[in-house]
Amino acid sequence: MKRKSKIESKGFSLENSESAKMENPFSVPSGYFQELGNQVKSNIQNLPTLDSANVKNPFAVPEGYFASLTEAIRDRIKSASTPSGFKTLASEIFRRPQIRLSLATLAILVVLLIKFTQKQELSIPENITCEELGNSIYIHELDEYFLVDELGNLPAGSTNGNTEQDVYIQWFMDNNYDINYKDIENHL
């Protein structure tokens, strides 16, 4: 048995073409078909016949364009002739976007690599002796106040100096006593 289509189930049959023709849902403005014939004839009469007598140039150029064109060409030739063979080759290479992109990526990688290796070199070794530190030329570049701040915060006994002496020095400094090194040694 033939299955009913969705349209047929809604009570409409595509086979019933006569009734469909009778019920045309579209309309045209009045007198349209009479006008259409005349319009088509008029359009055909106005068509340019494709023979050379009717050739018109529909394009225009900016004023004075052709006079300046010779000059522009001369400038292009001058600038193209000036660079050396290497420069021409280089500009030809760099003109290609793929090469420019590759070189930019390579440059970024090189910069990152240099940065990474420099960081490794600058890292402070964990074990350094006082002697090595004393021999270092960089010790003279350290700020005195920076050293006082840094070492002053360390707990007693953590430095390699005389611990008892350090405690006295710290006490004198904290109490604003004007005292020199010899006084402390004599006292001890």
């Binding site: 106005n46 340019p48 018109k56 529909p58 394009f59 225009a60 150029v61 900016p62």
Partner: peptide, 8 residues
């Protein structure tokens, strides 16, 4: 810079 008429 196109100066032609409708037909052009």
């Amino acid at each position: 810079l196109f100066t032609g008429d409708k037909i052009q």
